[in-house]
Design a protein around this nucleic acid. Structure first.
Lengths: 334, 334
DNA sequence: ATGAAAGCGCTAACAA
DNA sequence: TTGTTAGCGCTTTCAT
């Protein structure tokens, strides 16, 4: 293993000068710099990142904790975070929490163990009761709703407004009995916020909210979407619009409706939420809500880096809510 | 910051004893262990991973370099690798190479910089000419084809055989003019191996290989698949079967064919490769090749860990090729 | 502009 | 069973 001292010896300078060259510090004469660079090349020197980390008290890595990485939504988030972090010379270590409360807390702990310089936590399992746990003294940014009361930086989707817009879009297209496919709405979480938007739109339009139209699923994935949609159609439930709280559910629902012989958009119009890459290519293509995912991911990284750069600073905690647009495609365009 | 020495002082023992407790080393009297654990709790001690890394020469992190994480295929790979690594107490840091040769080499370099204990490189940009670069002295496992001649551990898909099986499946369903949608086939890479399987199937069936049926695309994603399929149908190309070298291309192609007014599977049967989660829910659902992704990812982690555990050992380099099955769904079932 | 000294917090190797 | 010593390779501080 070639160390900085080996290079120093070979170049006839001190270790410190080598360090200064490596880190582009000023006060190194060009001639000296040349000598050092030359020695580094000859010896195939590579910095030892672990040693640098120890010295600097940084790891150069941020953690990203998501429920699962194998979903269109979270993999896109991961992609953007990785790219944004790279611009700041940070690596991203990914953890999958399975949306469980325990694992999300564990991710928080790992961060505390100084494995990461900071953590972006896409919270899906934590509830308002865990607010206290988030008041940690190391850099953390929460991606998700402002459900925690406590002072944390967080980046949120326009869940209520966008869901209202999605539902309103269905109403404008003539739907009168609009069902919703969402997760359990017990707590103040994403599912329930989106549910709130749905209800608001119905209310404002003077449409009654039939409980039978409210369909909750466990895992919010394609399979659940397909099964539930089949059941709904099969059981003779009367509905002409369907708002799915995410595109995975919607993709499944499209399939389930076809299986049940229901025509989309003629008999039932369907709209999702997220605008995942796939939605554009489905048959029929999926109308959906498009938040500015990339901006959100970048904002999360920015907020985190701000905390990392100024560890002591008592910076006010910031909330960022992305804008959104309604993307109209075939599934509501009939 | 609470150090191991602070704990030692508080517990009235030496730093080494604390270290032994932390690492569950034997030869610590239960009473002593208690004292130490107690002190650790009182002082809210957390190991400093950077220091441990420097001492041990390990980082506890492996790198995973993939072309992009926001694709059904690679996000699934990432998910499985993360889960498998977790079982060995390793974290996974993900890099996106954009399938570029430079970035793949850079990932290799980062690994050399001791940022990772090892690297799983999903090679898409490297060619046979880079074989030499892979003969590195640190743990690396290549995910992809055996295109590098050199001695490397690698995990490969049954590209040729499975592609032949996919094409054969189309033939068995009555297709006679089978097109292929694949990447450039200049080099010995995944695209060309799958192309080889396609050609072999045609040959064995005595079907002529019309160059017009060979469609190469740049990026192998949904958009390209859709555009190219539209062009093919629009230009009046005569084909009754389509083998797409991955499911993303196939998803796009299904869409493109619909746009061009072509019925799947009645007029054209389509089969993909990968069996991504989405393929089951498409309309029509997509026939495809299902390699054992999870096994591949786990095998890659296993091979890597073997190298990490025995750094010096001259272990024979291993090749693992996954099995596969043909999943028949609606897109070829007419 | 360069260098010497002193750690960063931990652990391997040896000593007691 | 426990403690002492001596680093891991780098950077910070302060001299020169």
């Amino acid at each position: 293993m070639v160390t900085i001292r080996d290079v120093a010896k070979a170049a006839g300078v001190s270790a410190m000068t080598v360090s200064n060259v490596i880190n582009d510090h000023p006060n190194v004469r060009p001639a000296t710099r040349e000598k050092v660079l030359d020695a580094m090349a000859r010896l195939h020197y590579r910095v030892n990142v672990a040693a640098r980390n120890l010295s600097k008290g940084r790891t150069g890595t941020i953690g990203l904790a998501v429920p699962e990485v194998n979903s269109p939504y979270y993999s896109r988030l991961a992609a953007t975070v990785i790219t944004a972090a790279e611009r700041h010379d940070l690596r991203v270590s990914i953890e999958q929490t399975g949306a469980s409360r325990e694992n999300e807390l564990a991710a928080l702990a790992l961060s505390r163990y100084r494995l990461y310089d900071g953590l972006i936590l896409s919270a899906a399992g934590l509830g308002p009761a865990d607010a206290g746990r988030l008041k940690v003294d190391h850099p953390v940014v929460i991606l998700g709703e402002r459900i925690f009361g406590g002072p944390v930086d967080h980046v949120a989707m326009p869940n209520v407004d966008a869901s209202e817009a999605a539902t309103r879009h269905l109403i404008e297209r003539g739907c009168r009995r609009i069902a919703i496919l969402c997760g359990p709405v017990e707590e103040v979480d994403v599912a329930s916020l989106r549910f709130t938007g749905y209800r608001q739109a119905l209310e404002k339009a003077g449409l009654p909210a039939d409980p039978a139209l409210i369909q909750t699923v466990g895992r919010q994935d394609m399979r659940e979407g397909a099964e539930r949609a089949r059941e709904m159609a099969g059981s003779g439930l009367d509905f002409d619009g369907l708002f799915c709280v995410n595109d995975s559910l919607a993709m499944g629902a499209l399939r389930g409706l076809v299986d049940a012989g229901v025509q989309v958009p003629d008999q039932v119009k369907v709209i999702g939420f997220d605008n995942v890459k796939e939605s554009e290519f489905l048959i029929p293509s999926l109308s959906t809500i498009a938040p500015d995912h990339d901006l959100m991911a970048e904002k999360a990284v920015d907020l985190l880096i701000r905390r990392i750069e100024e560890p002591g600073a008592r910076i006010e905690h910031e909330e960022f809510v992305s804008g959104f647009s309604v993307v109209v495609r075939e599934s509501t365009d009939g």
